[in-house]
């Protein structure tokens, strides 16, 4: 096990290195000059060149990347071109909001997805089952900005149940978390349904029924705990999907997380922030996957880590 973890961590480091190289290269070849953005329209050529020198952007690609990497190894993500603040500080100040949103979203997708999946499994083959599975299709394919705007319009503007975007209270969290959660709930409901159907066919369930246990007890005590385990292991992998969704959802709801930070930085060609947010997202995804793999053997002893 420790050897496995060590190997996986090494592989993770290589993945992050790859991500940083690719992102850095893409930003390097971008047909937009960050120095022009910083220098503004009134800058003289001399001013522009002096800023380019200050930022080291007059250096060849590999040297620029080398400098970035050297900083990175010391935990230095650089400073924002336009805000001049350390990228690590900016990300740290916004990470709690994103984590809160993620927790809320995971709760929503589990609550929605699992209950839909269980209901569909128990009502297998009936109209309700088909309706639920159809609903899961819709939620998986609905674009998040559409769902988000629709939620805002209906529940905040028309009904006035929730604040119209923003951050601060539990009520602010509900709509963005639900928007993110709805997408995931579709996947979870389908997985939960098939897992539950498998378990309900198992011998021990038949035994439980034969003992004369009530339907509720069979489902809740015997079937659910076994059926839910493989589904739970999915959460780690889910983080990647979340990272993609937060940029959209945070912007729609004015949620002050790293997704919003990334969106603003992209508009301003603020390369150090784009790099920083990309790396933090990559780390989250890599760790999420690792966690999912590490948890798997505990959930299902038949799985062995090699």
């Amino acid at each position: 096990m420790p050897a496995y973890v060590l190997r996986r961590l090494l592989v993770s480091a290589l993945i992050l290195l790859g991500v940083s190289l690719i992102t850095f290269f893409l930003l390097y070849v971008l047909p937009a000059d960050p120095v022009r953005q910083i220098a503004g329209r009134s800058a003289t050529t001399a001013t522009v060149e002096s800023i380019r020198r200050e930022l080291g952007l007059d250096q060849p690609f590999l040297i620029q990347y080398g400098h970035y990497l050297a900083g990175l190894l010391q935990g230095d993500l650089g400073r924002s071109y336009l805000q001049k603040t350390e990228v690590a500080t900016l990300i740290a100040s916004r990470l709690p909001a994103t984590l809160l949103l993620m927790v809320g979203a995971i709760f929503c997708e589990l609550a929605l997805g699992l209950s839909m999946g269980i209901a569909a499994a128990l009502l297998r083959g009936r109209v309700a089952d088909q309706a639920l599975m159809m609903a899961s299709f819709v939620t998986v394919s609905a674009p998040q900005f559409v769902v988000g705007l629709l939620m805002l319009y209906v529940f905040a503007v028309k009904l006035g149940w929730f604040p119209i975007g923003g951050y601060g209270t539990f009520l602010h969290l509900v709509l963005p978390a639900l928007t993110l959660g709805i997408l995931g709930s579709g996947w979870y409901s389908r997985m939960m349904r098939s897992s539950m159907i498998d378990v309900l066919r198992a011998d021990y369930i038949r035994t439980a029924r034969a003992k004369g246990l009530g339907r509720a007890r069979v489902v809740l005590r015997h079937a659910l705990p076994n059926a839910i385990l493989p589904v739970i292991a999915m959460i780690g992998i889910d983080i990647g999907i979340f990272m993609g969704g937060i940029v959209v959802v945070e912007s729609v709801f004015g949620w002050p997380g790293i997704g919003q930070l990334a969106w603003q930085a992209i508009q301003r060609v603020d390369i150090p922030i784009i790099m920083g947010v990309t790396l933090v997202s990559a780390i989250a995804i890599v760790l999420g996957n690792l966690l999912a793999d590490l948890v798997a053997p505990f959930i299902d002893p038949r799985i062995r880590l090699k």
């Binding site: 910083i38 220098a39 009134s42 800058a43 020198r53």
Partner: peptide, 24 residues
Amino acid sequence: LPATQSPGSGFFSMIKGYDAMVGG
């Protein structure tokens, strides 16, 4: 000062000694 990376630096080009500042 170039180190400040001010987008407004160019406005001050009429002040004596500006070129030496920008030139480092």
